[in-house]
Amino acid sequence: MSLVFYTNPMSRGRIIRWMLEEAGAPYETRFLRYGEEMNSPAYAAINPMRKVPAIVHNGHVVTECGAICLYLADAFPEAGLAPPPAGRADYYRWMMFAAGPWEQANVNAALGVNVTAEQSRMAGYGTFDRALDVLLSLVPEDGYMLGEKFSALDVYAGSHIGWAIEFGSVPATPEVEAYIKRIRARPAALRAVELDDAAAAEYGPVRS
């Protein structure tokens, strides 16, 4: 089994680091600096978008954070990070919501892109406030997004919520803060932060 993880410690790759640690499978990390290394022909052959993260598992390339989380949950089922196939409706629905409408809405807001009422029909997220309301509806009072069992959805959507709190686009309500504290206290999450923080000084402070 070969599993190679391409990342930068100050990027969305932190989501995948956490997911890999939750999966519990051995993997090799290859850090890429922003600029020449990430834009090299060698890496472009893996991800033509020239973005991190990416994984190569047994010769198969997977890019895009949401897709990598879904893939790893299926590739390593013993970790129990995905519901049984018959119970995946909410799992797929909210993973794709976080990867699509929420990320689009959040990035546009950060860039100062103001969508008019007329344009909201074209925008996949409608309006930022609507997307935010839906995101907050996923935060459980206790347990995890799919109930009592932690899943890849908590890694992916939970990471988005945690970062959005740091950037001020999600309100730090007691319920939201308690949820983020709960998932970030997991041993795999703590290991992932330690690994990436240790590499951050060498590989740069810029987020992708």
Rank of each mutant, 00 (worst) to 15 (best):
M49F: 09
A117F: 12
V52K: 04
R30W: 04
P174L: 09
G112C: 11
Y91L: 09
Y156H: 13
A200T: 05
N106F: 13
V62T: 01
R93D: 11
C69A: 04
D196F: 10
D129K: 07
M95A: 11
G35F: 07
E148S: 15
P77E: 15
R182Y: 07
A198L: 00
E194D: 13
N106R: 14
P77L: 14
E148G: 03
V176T: 10
A82F: 08
K51Y: 10
I16L: 10
P205N: 05
E21Y: 04
D90K: 09
F128S: 07
A185C: 13
L190N: 13
N58E: 12
L132K: 04
P205Y: 05
G147M: 08
M38W: 12
E78P: 06
L190S: 11
G204E: 00
A99Q: 12
Y43H: 06
P85E: 07
A117E: 14
I180K: 04
Y27F: 14
S11C: 11
S11I: 05
S137M: 00
D196Q: 11
A73W: 07
Y203N: 00
D142H: 14
A185E: 15
P85R: 00
R130E: 08
I55P: 04
E141Y: 07
L70A: 13
A109E: 00
N108L: 08
N108P: 02
A164N: 06
V170H: 02
A198G: 04
I161N: 01
E103K: 02
S159C: 10
D133I: 06
P187M: 00
A42W: 03
V62R: 02
T7I: 13
E78R: 14
F76E: 03
F97L: 12
M96R: 14
M95P: 02
K181P: 03
V61N: 03
F5A: 06
G35E: 06
G66W: 05
W163Y: 09
M95D: 07
A157T: 00
G80I: 08
S120T: 02
G80R: 01
W94C: 12
R186P: 02
I161H: 04
D142P: 10
K149Q: 04
F97A: 04
A201Y: 01
N39T: 15
L132G: 00
D129S: 05
N114F: 12
G162S: 12
D129Y: 06
R130N: 11
N47H: 13
V134Q: 10
I16M: 11
Y6Q: 07
R30A: 03
M38L: 14
S40C: 05
K51G: 12
E64F: 00
F97W: 01
A82S: 06
Y125L: 00
E37K: 00
S208C: 15
A45L: 12
I46E: 08
S2R: 08
L111Y: 09
A131W: 02
F167N: 11
N106A: 14
V107R: 14
V139F: 03
V139I: 09
T29P: 03
A82E: 09
F31I: 03
C69I: 09
E28V: 13
G66K: 01
M49N: 13
L70C: 07
A45F: 09
V113K: 02
S169I: 01
V155E: 02
T7S: 15
T116S: 13
